[in-house]
Design a protein around this nucleic acid. Structure first.
Lengths: 327, 327
DNA sequence: ATGAAAGCGCTAACAT
DNA sequence: ATGTTAGCGCTTTCAT
């Protein structure tokens, strides 16, 4: 198939090593030779074989990304951001979906480890110690999760919650409900804690229990919310919030007339629902890009030591599902 | 870092080739030796280096997937399906997003080509001849697109349109509008043609022009649809259909009371909107899986020749946005 | 400034 | 059944 470096060398009348140098470190070789090599390479359509290069350099210029579920509308944005940033840095990225299975996550990570320079785990399901063990084998970056002091990209969940409570509070809401997500989720704990702190002493927070982080989870929580006498509710994520709104509407409960709803994440459909969902936006593409930046920094031998964590801002997007506290 | 095959060989007191054989073709080697090698490998935590293996075998056991836009809710399902099937076959997959840029698509394809055994292009934006040229360099599988007789996974768009028209027709609709997508889109042409054929002689089809395949594209088309006196409208895809419904609602036009709406694709939010969207479902994960199957078949030297194309069924999902033709 | 030689980790002939 | 040799395509000493 493709031409090899020897073919180019022969065509240019030089040795393979000269070709290698001419193409990569052209300042170390005679300009005329460089030109000759360039031409030969061009005319043969030569493309260096990254596999062979990787074998000798020990660098694959590949990154791996592992996510729990691509079908969850939160993740595609992250993948896209990571992919874009990686491309800029001339890296390619493997993507693996674990179907929320921690066992699979670990296996996939170990398999990809040999083929990538760094592995980025988005919202990993693995236990801390497993993550730490993995980090011994491969450069690791965590997204939306802390574990030990592994490098991580985080969102300012507490800040986001503060904004949400501030907004609701200004609208006159004094009793806010919380529809929490999975107990095992790191982001959920963060958001719950942030919300408690934000409410402390200002508004009464009613925690309505944990629900599946899905549309149906929101649907299931709706009647419980209605029974709880709150005038506003904050859901762990947008998909749940959408389920909530849907069920409220089905029950003839006006949103935001009778109850206000706030989601988290700002997934694409949050803006497309009616009324559009007020939500705490987490920068998804930015998260992916930051993950690559961290990985690249760790890989760079001249790098300024480990940059253990990077926190991204969260921002409340006020849309149609929040309004004045009525009755 | 990792132990190499020589380390294992030394530990087991055999030669590297024996280790290789013991691990891969164990029936050709003495069971006792196999056991010894296994143990040695285990205790050293030996993991074969796929890069080195790929260099000599010429097979990377990697697949590449290129999609125009991961943020489009249609694609994550495809990625997920492909990823799952690839994993079953012990392949890893590179994912690249081109931001709808054909130039980038071509460049990414050529770059990935060297690192993968086959490249799967989902709804490629490239011209036929570019695709054909690419196919000369790397095993190619097309998803939702035909070009020459390159291997492709297709959806039965015509069948889907037939079902949609049958449904609408049964509900008494005699004038149906079509909100088309990009002229350059292969799927769009397929759907338009399918729709014309399905309508021929039964119902009057009003083609309302091409719009951006986005929520806003649907929003933009809404008033034009209303002015056209149709009682039902079929949109190129779900995102547009959702935009349509949204704008209809904003205009106080009842869906499906006054107008029925049908989308295409069955993206996740189609089921979560209110009312839930009637849509022609295209099997997304299946598409991804079928892409891998085709690629694997092409790669298999013992394979039964090229299987040029595989067509997947489309299915109308009747939900809340279609109802009897009223006035 | 360039070439020759070695070798990354592995597998596949070719011996034995 | 196992070891030896060669080499995948490239980069990198080490010479010259």
């Amino acid at each position: 198939m493709g031409a090899t470096i020897r073919d180019v060398a022969r065509a240019a009348g030089v040795s393979p090593s000269t070709v290698s140098r001419a193409l990569a470190m052209s300042e170390l070789v005679n300009p005329a030779t460089v030109e000759r090599v360039r031409r030969a390479a061009e005319s043969l359509g030569y493309q260096p074989n990254p596999v062979a290069r990787g074998l000798i350099t020990g660098r694959t210029r590949n990154l791996g990304l592992i996510v729990p579920d691509l079908a969850n509308p939160f993740f595609p944005g992250v993948v896209k951001g990571m992919q874009a940033r990686a491309r800029e840095a001339d890296y390619a990225v493997f993507v693996a979906d674990t179907d929320e299975d921690p066992g699979l996550e670990s296996r996939l990570a170990r398999k990809l480890a040999k083929q990538v320079d760094a592995l980025v785990l988005c919202s990993p399901r693995l236990a801390d110690d497993e993550l730490l063990a993995l980090a011994a084998d491969v450069t690791l970056v965590l997204l939306h999760r802390r574990a030990g002091d592994l490098p991580a990209v985080l969102a300012d969940n507490a800040g986001g919650m503060r904004q949400a409570v501030g907004h609701l509070s200004a609208l006159g809401h004094r009793r806010i409900g919380l529809v929490a997500g999975p107990v095992s989720s790191w982001s959920n704990s963060e958001r719950v804690a942030g919300l408690r702190a934000a409410c402390a002493g200002r508004v009464e927070l009613t925690e309505l229990g944990n629900f599946a982080p899905t549309f149906d989870g929101g649907v299931a929580a709706a009647d419980i919310v209605l029974a709880s006498e709150v005038t506003a509710v904050i859901a762990y994520n947008d998909v749940m919030a959408l389920g909530l709104v849907n069920m409220f509407t089905a029950r003839g409960v006006g949103v935001p007339g009778r109850i206000s709803v706030v989601g988290c994440d700002d997934i694409p459909q949050a803006a497309m629902s009616s009324p559009p969902l007020t939500t705490v936006a987490v920068p998804k593409e930015q998260t992916g890009r930051a993950g690559v930046d961290l990985a690249l920094a760790l890989l760079d031998p001249a790098g300024p030591g480990p940059a253990p964590a990077r926190e991204l801002g969260a921002q409340l997007l006020v849309r149609g599902t929040t309004g004045p506290a009525g009755r």
